[in-house]
Design a protein around this nucleic acid. Sequence first.
DNA 1: TATATTTATACAAAAAATTGAATATTCAAA
DNA 2: TTTGAATATTCAATTTTTTGTATAAATATA
Lengths: 151, 151
Amino acid sequence: MYSKTHRQNKIKEILRDHAIYNQEELVKFLSEEGIEVTQATLSRDFQELGVVRTSAAEGSRYTLNVEEAGNQIRKLISFEILSVESNEMLIIVRTLAGRAQGVAHYIDKLNSKLILGTIAGDDTILVVPANVKNIADIVQLINKIMNEEKT
Amino acid sequence: MYSKTHRQNKIKEILRDHAIYNQEELVKFLSEEGIEVTQATLSRDFQELGVVRTSAAEGSRYTLNVEEAGNQIRKLISFEILSVESNEMLIIVRTLAGRAQGVAHYIDKLNSKLILGTIAGDDTILVVPANVKNIADIVQLINKIMNEEKT
DNA sequence: TATATTTATACAAAAAATTGAATATTCAAA
DNA sequence: TTTGAATATTCAATTTTTTGTATAAATATA
């Protein structure tokens, strides 16, 4: 048997190395690798992996999306954030070592009007609120991300 | 309802901020936070989170193990790496947006003699080999990390 | 060592995630 | 538009994960 993770890793690998124009094509590719799966599952995998159609001369092919990894990234985030704390001026998010940049990037991409900006070191993020009155809301927002179930 | 991730995040937080000497104590702590759970579950959580007993003057208390947290990160890495490519001089690793720093940090920590160093931008890592002859091996090393199964 | 306390695990129940078949929906080409 | 191909989704079955209870095993204490 193969695991879902294994299948999805193979998919990423294939999409990187081959031009795949539709899902049935990938069904065959995977089959040759000993992975039997239906088109319905691939449709779901694509969503999870953040696979997108990139238009090319020969037609639009499927590729991995750098910006959005679907909801995978959300799962990473909740592992990486250790705590969220604040004082009257700002919010400090503590993360696993070396993960602050990635989490800060995610927070930036939320484009929340409550947040002026972030600065990330190795395991600490400083979140600057647009207004100090927002602090409680921002803490709540980040806590929500941390504890959110996948959608 | 609460999610398992949420519970485990709370556990990490509590272990950081309070001296917990046994699992029943933590059952009560969590209960006060509205999280009802049994000792058996905490025993399993501790294993998953890599919680260890640290002996202190007052007795041995439970703390997060830095080493084990590192093991958890390995599982994140394969999600973040999109591709590994090279020419005659160096290796380029492409990652999800905003994740290059974290992945580079991990590669650095491998302390591989094959690698001279890394430079990371937002979604791209430049890996400089100690010797150009190592390039194939380094690519293979990184590919291996990418395809590692979850344990 | 004997006893009490604490932790880990076997087992079963419950909950959640995964998947395929069938089908609805969307998209592209004529 | 209309038609055919491609993709997404509903539903149900299946598998995996999570959890508590009961208890075994381990550890600490007297």
